[in-house]
Amino acid sequence: MLKDITIGQYLPGHSFLHSLDPRTKIIAVLIYMISLFVVNNFFGLGFMLLLSFVVVLTSQIPVKFFFRGIKAIIFIVSLTVILQMFMTPGEIMWQFGIFKITKEGIHQAIFMGTRLILLVSVTSILTLTTTPISLTDGIEHLLKPFQRFGVPAHELAMMMTIALRFIPTLIEETEKIMKAQAARGADFESGNLVQRAKAMIPLLVPLFLNAVKRADELAMAMEARCYHGGENRTRLKALQYTKRDYVAAVLCIGMVAGAFTSRFI
């Protein structure tokens, strides 16, 4: 049951998107997000929608993964749509008591709903086609210029890598402790809210203790291997832009141009 958690899930593959440099992909996603808010009419929105379809198809990832991502935000999307529909002032199309739907409201609702769904789908393409390790690598590189303003780029990336690495370990351990306590008569499933919260204590105490202990050991192991932060550190797999990344860059420029042009149609 706990194994269903899919934070930063990655699906191995060999598509064009999989082979792009993570930096390219991160920047492309940012540009896509900006373009999404640049467009202000249905031509523009249609253009962005079309683009996202093309990207989803090139990623060769089963569509059900995107639906799963959308399912997770369905509540936020519907709330946004409803609020936009009823709260936007303008030309009234339908009215019932204090509730009224305006033409502008419908327009806004469609825009915001589509934008949210596209945002989630495109960011999930990023995590689905990029391994967590290269993703953090990319973030580290992109944050490097900000280091002189005090942004600890390497440390942030290392923290993210470690956190991602230990998610499965913690899940496994949770299951193990749950079983061990169940064997001693613990009951995690029945009772009211207070009883259930209390039943979590035998699970959480060992879990946190072990996590802290493990962090200590990890720090020691890293130090034993002479880890001392990002300075002068070289990597086994240095990030390198290839032809594909330049192709992607050109496509991104095309996307921004398209988004701006659509405003004048």
Partner: peptide
Amino acid sequence: LKELRMQVGLVFQYPEYQLF
């Protein structure tokens, strides 16, 4: 199940990790 688990005691590997 609880009664069953009272009859059949199971000690896991490294059981000291269940102390709380």
